[in-house]
Design a protein around this nucleic acid. Structure first.
Length: 506
RNA sequence: GGGUCGCUAGCUCAGCGGUAGAGCAUUCGGCUUUUAACCGACUGGUCCUGAGUUCGAAUCUCAGGCGACCCA
């Protein structure tokens, strides 16, 4: 039957429900238990036995198995499912004063997808299924559209993302992923809160997009008559707060970058940035380990997990290796020993590094070699430390290694998952570095940063030595929920709208 | 940006140049222990869109749309 006919049939049932005095869109229902509560509390009720404790449940009808004078429904709520045992004699006994044909109404006017409430006692059937032995039922919300195939479910990836609500209804593991995501962010916030950090919200609309190398989204404020940029990082505002005297601050929130979409990139994603005064990047490494292992332990109960069939051991301490050493191990080239750019490029080419002909510095070259030869091999959690200054405009120079900064990135399953520095606190050095960025920007580099004058001014008032840390929440959640695509951990990922042929051009 | 693959009933899929198909769902009938219930009958289509080739196109070609994956 065509889609429109299926809907029309259900609208007809809507009218019939009203005509017998049953509101198809009820106002309220009070359950005594969730499905998980019942399954846990009465897990030991023997087959074929019942009790006389009255319970009330509510949920969506997921399957219906209807006989002449008996029916079994599977009812699903957020926590799980329970079977309804619907016996004609019992329902008529308790409902016929208000609904003379209650059992017939149940058979004729309910469908898969409807949300109903039921009251009754508990009974485990002869076949072993814990069930609510229903005395009374009530329609709470009549569903007008059919759910996907009860056996095959919904697999069409486009529908799953475009109509996530259907995906959530029929795929319990999807609900579990988003539940875990919430538990992970709650765990991180709880840890930081207990450790004395406070969360402060900084602007999403900014006049200068800084704190990272990325193309911003541009928008427009009408009454101020000016362009604004959606933030690409929370870094520069959180540092202003450290200048202002907050010694432990963080923000967990949405970031926007006007870049491509892939299994690892969504234009809007979530990061947490944490800043701790009087700390350095070594302290941040310890904090990173603690935050992630705490979340894994609290949410999954273990730090030994599996990602896409690969065992991942999150138990700290994690491996630490400098970028130069990692590149040397992978390519045999010790870029730290090279001082001439042309020699370095030749050595890199000999090691199989591509697209480096116009590389402007050895620092960039090392990073390119790292991205091409090392990054995807870092499966187990690994801190890569001491990045070249050329690619780290906001990090403090290394206290003992010229040309490098006190910076690390964390890699898990070959993906950058966190980024951290001993923050650059010298305002004069910071200005030089941002002006170099601005020169690149002026030369056409769309990802280069501009000079945020007010941020420099803030630094001139003096920022204490500070450790900063950013973690990509989506990528962390992917690892902890075994999700192959970032879209699997974002409830409503960005998709192009489907073309509407009916729309007339203006 | 380049490549490969996909789009057929509400859902899951088959069909790959000769009448548009199956299972589930829906509708109708039967059934008081089902778990993808079962038995019987029926219904349901812009084969993503457009153009072309052909006696004939879901099928072949071209263009476009949306999506997935891989590469840069």
């Amino acid at each position: 039957m065509a889609s429109e006919d299926l809907r029309a049939t259900r609208i007809e049932k809507l009218d019939q429900l009203r005509s017998i005095g049953m509101n198809p869109f009820a106002y309220q229902w009070k359950s005594t238990h969730s499905m998980a509560d019942l399954q846990a509390k009465y897990g030991d009720l023997p087959n074929g036995e019942e009790n006389d404790v009255d319970v009330a449940v509510a949920g969506r009808i997921m399957t219906r198995r209807v006989f002449g004078k008996l029916a079994f429904f599977t009812l699903q709520d957020e926590t799980g499912t329970i079977q309804l045992y619907l016996d004609k004699n019992r329902i008529q006994e308790f409902m016929s004063d208000r609904f003379p044909e209650a059992f017939a109404n149940l058979k004729q006017l309910t469908d898969m997808g409807d949300i109903i409430g039921a009251k009754g006692t508990l009974k485990r059937t002869d076949k072993g299924e814990l069930s609510v032995y229903v005395k009374e039922f009530e329609m709470l919300t009549k569903s007008l559209l059919p759910l996907p195939d009860k056996f095959h479910g919904l697999t069409d990836i486009t529908t799953r993302y475009r109509q996530r609500y259907i995906d959530l209804i029929v795929n319990p593991e999807v609900r579990e992923t988003f539940r875990r995501r919430a538990l992970i962010t709650a765990s991180i916030r709880r840890y930081l809160d207990r450790d004395g950090f406070i969360e402060i919200e900084t602007p999403t609309l900014t006049s200068e997009a800084g704190g990272a190398d990325a193309r911003p989204f541009v928008t427009y404020h009408n009454t101020m008559d000016m362009e604004l940029y959606l933030r690409i990082a929370t870094e520069l505002h959180l540092k202003r707060l450290v200048v202002g005297g907050f010694e432990k601050v963080f923000e967990l929130g949405r970031i926007f970058r006007n870049e491509g979409i892939s299994t690892r990139h969504n234009p809007e994603f979530t990061s947490i940035e944490v800043y701790q005064a009087y700390a350095d990047y070594n302290d941040m490494m310890a904090l990173t380990e603690t935050l992630i292992t705490t979340a894994a332990t609290e949410v999954l109960g273990t730090t030994e997990i599996t990602y896409q069939e690969t065992p991942i051991n999150l138990t700290s301490p994690w491996k630490r290796i400098t970028m130069h050493d990692a590149v040397k191990d992978a390519t045999g080239v010790d870029f730290a020993a090279l001082t001439d750019l042309n020699e370095a490029i030749a050595a890199a080419k000999a090691a199989g590094i591509h697209n480096i002909d116009d590389c402007p510095s050895i620092g960039k070259l090392v990073n390119e070699a790292f991205e091409q030869k090392v990054e995807t091999t870092l499966i187990q959690p690994t801190f890569i430390t001491d990045y070249p200054v050329e690619i780290s405009p906001l990090a403090k120079p290394h206290r003992s290694k010229p040309g490098l900064t006190e910076r690390f990135e964390l890699f898990i399953v070959g993906r950058e998952t966190a980024n951290s520095f001993s923050e650059l606190t010298d305002p004069l050095d910071q200005r030089e570095r941002l002006e170099a960025q601005a020169a690149r920007k002026a030369a056409g580099d769309l990802e280069a940063q501009g000079v945020d004058e007010d941020f420099i001014t803030a630094l001139e008032y003096g920022m204490p030595p500070t450790g900063g840390l950013g973690i990509g929440i989506d990528r962390l959640v992917m690892v902890l929920t075994d999700a192959p695509s970032i879209r699997d951990v974002i409830a409503f990922p960005l998709l192009k709208p489907e073309k509407n042929e009916d729309q007339t051009p203006e």
